[in-house]
Design a protein around this nucleic acid. Structure first.
Lengths: 164, 164
DNA sequence: TTAACTGCAAATGCTTTGCATCGAT
DNA sequence: ATCGATGCAAAGCATTTGCAGTTAA
C-alpha cells in the first residue's frame, strides 16, 4: 500500500473533523475548506491568503470566519502562529525545522534540508520552562529580493553626509 | 584593566553615537536614552516598555519617537525585531541564541545556556538565501504560567460535550 | 541658520468582537 | 428545535505618518 502526501493530508483532515465532533465543534463546509487550505499549503499563508484561496469555492466566506477557524485550529494544537512583521503566518508542520524569513518581502520559506539542530528538551525543562515546540528562524534576504534590492529605496535615512 | 558588562555597554553606546554622527543622524538626548534603555535591557522590551522606562527621565517623551528611534537602530543593524503575538519585542544581542517564548504571558526569555545549534551558513547560502542572523525559538509555558494555568479561562472553546 | 528631530494627533492595517441570521446536529 | 457558526460591520490596538514647532550642528 502506497502512502503518499495526498492521502496523509486527507487522513489528517479526517482526524481533525472527528476531533471537532468529539469536542462539540460543528463540522461546516467553510471550516473544512479552511482547514484543508491551511494544511495543504507549504507556504505558511497569512489569514488573508487563506481567505483569498478559499474564497474561490466559497465566495460568501468572510475573513472573520477564517480568523475564528484558525484560532480554533490553534486551540486544537494543529497549527502554530509565525508572526512576521505585523502579520501572522500559519504553520501546520509541527516538527522542528528551519524557516528562512525574508526581511524585505516577509515570505516564510522552509529550508530544504530536513536536518534540525537538536535542542535538549530535558535541559530546557530543568530551567522551569515547559517546551511545546521549537523552530529555527534564519532572517535575511531571499534570492529574489537580493536581485531587486536596488530597486526600492531604503528606510528613512537622513539625507545629509551620504559619503563620510 | 577590568572589562565588565557596564563598560562594554557604555562603549557600544558611544560607538552608536559616533555612527549616528557619521551617517548624518543627530544625537539627541531622547535618542540616546532610548538607545541605552534597549541595549541595557536583557528582557526584550516592547516599544511600550521602552517608552515607560525612558519616560522616567523624559516625561515629555512620545511613543512615536520611541518607534522612530527603534526603526533607526534596526536600519543601523544594532537591534532586530522579535514579533510575538501582535507585539514586537526588541533584541540587541545579535549572536545566535535560544529564546524561550511563553504562549500565555508572551514574555521572551533568553535560555541560560550559551550553546547554540550550529546552522551551516554555507548550505543555506547555496539555496540562494542570504542569511543575516538566526535564532532558535522554543515556544511553551514559562514556570510562572504553568502554575497559574488554572486561573485563567481557556480560549473560546465550545461548551458542549466537555467529556467525550 | 537650517535641516533633522520631537511630540502630537490622525491615520493605517491586522485582528477581534458583537450581533442578527443561518444551518449542523 | 437547538445552539453553535457565519457574515457583516464596528471596535480594538500596535504601529506609522503628517506636520508645526523645536533644536542639534
Amino acid at each position: 500500500m502506497i502512502i503518499n502526501k495526498e492521502s496523509l493530508l486527507k487522513e489528517r483532515i479526517a482526524q481533525i473533523a472527528q476531533q471537532l465532533r468529539e469536542r462539540g465543534y460543528r463540522v461546516t463546509p467553510q471550516r473544512m475548506a479552511i482547514v484543508q487550505a491551511v494544511l495543504e499549503s507549504s507556504e505558511h499563508p497569512t489569514a488573508e491568503e487563506v481567505y483569498r484561496k478559499v474564497s474561490d469555492s466559497f465566495p460568501m466566506l468572510s475573513l472573520a470566519t477564517v480568523y475564528k477557524t484558525l484560532e480554533m485550529l490553534k486551540t486544537l494544537g494543529e497549527i502554530v502562529e509565525i508572526p512576521v512583521k505585523g502579520q501572522v503566518h500559519y504553520e501546520s508542520n509541527l516538527r522542528p525545522h528551519v524557516h528562512l524569513i525574508c526581511e524585505r518581502c516577509h515570505k516564510v520559506m522552509d529550508w530544504g534540508e530536513e536536518i534540525v539542530p537538536p535542542i535538549p528538551k530535558e535541559t530546557i525543562e530543568s530551567s522551569g520552562f515547559y517546551p511545546r515546540y521549537y523552530l529555527v528562524e534564519v532572517h535575511g534576504l531571499c534570492s529574489q529580493c537580493q536581485s531587486e534590492s536596488n530597486s526600492v529605496p531604503e528606510a528613512d535615512k537622513p539625507r545629509g553626509n551620504p559619503g563620510a
